[in-house]
């Protein structure tokens, strides 16, 4: 496996930030496991862990796409050491509250945890990510990645056309 760090529009990604079939009892458990890992990797400060959990309680991040749901937990820039993205494909879906719709729930199969160090930065990354995830085939392929190597390659390919 390539263990080198890759930067996509200044957002770092590497195999250590990825989870294939993460076993989580619920959304908060999934977020916690991902946040603890990012802290261990030095991407975020320890304060990120309670901050991202609290942020999710107040401003939930589930997004319903045509065939599946995703979540994009994130929090304030002060908890971040370096901008990065962590991705978890879940062993079984967990329920998130829908972003902006407190009464709606989303069945989430894949979580994109965003560690953003620069406010209003990473515009091209965020824009491309959200545009590409609206494509059913692309999202399906990401969720069905069976190894970290495949996931990282599938993820990188989202940004190829835009480079």
């Amino acid at each position: 496996m390539e263990n080198t760090i890759t930067s996509i529009f200044d957002m770092n990604i590497k195999p250590e930030y990825l989870f294939i079939h993460l076993d989580a009892v619920d959304n908060m458990d999934a977020i916690k496991q991902m946040a603890v890992n990012l802290a261990k990797q030095g991407v975020v400060k320890n304060s990120f862990i309670p901050a991202v959990l609290e942020r999710e309680r107040i401003f939930s991040t589930g997004l319903q796409f045509d065939e599946t749901g995703i979540a994009i937990p994130h929090t304030d820039t002060q908890h971040i050491n370096s901008s990065a993205i962590s991705i978890a494909i879940l062993k079984k879906p967990v329920t998130f509250q829908a972003m902006g719709m407190p009464d709606s729930k989303v069945n989430v199969e894949i979580i994109f945890m965003l560690a953003i160090k620069t406010a209003h930065g990473h515009i091209k990354f965020l824009q491309t990510l959200m545009n590409q995830l609206q494509n059913k085939v692309i999202l399906h392929n990401l969720i069905n990645s069976t190894s970290k190597k495949l996931l990282i390659n599938n993820f990188k390919s989202l940004f190829n056309k835009e480079n």
Binding site: R55, F59, T77, M99, L114, I116
Partner: peptide, 16 residues
């Protein structure tokens, strides 16, 4: 606007 003012509002702003 968004919760943190750093992420989703950025994505919305550019698409808009």
């Amino acid at each position: 606007a968004c919760g943190a003012g750093v992420c989703t509002s950025t994505a919305v702003l550019n698409k808009l």
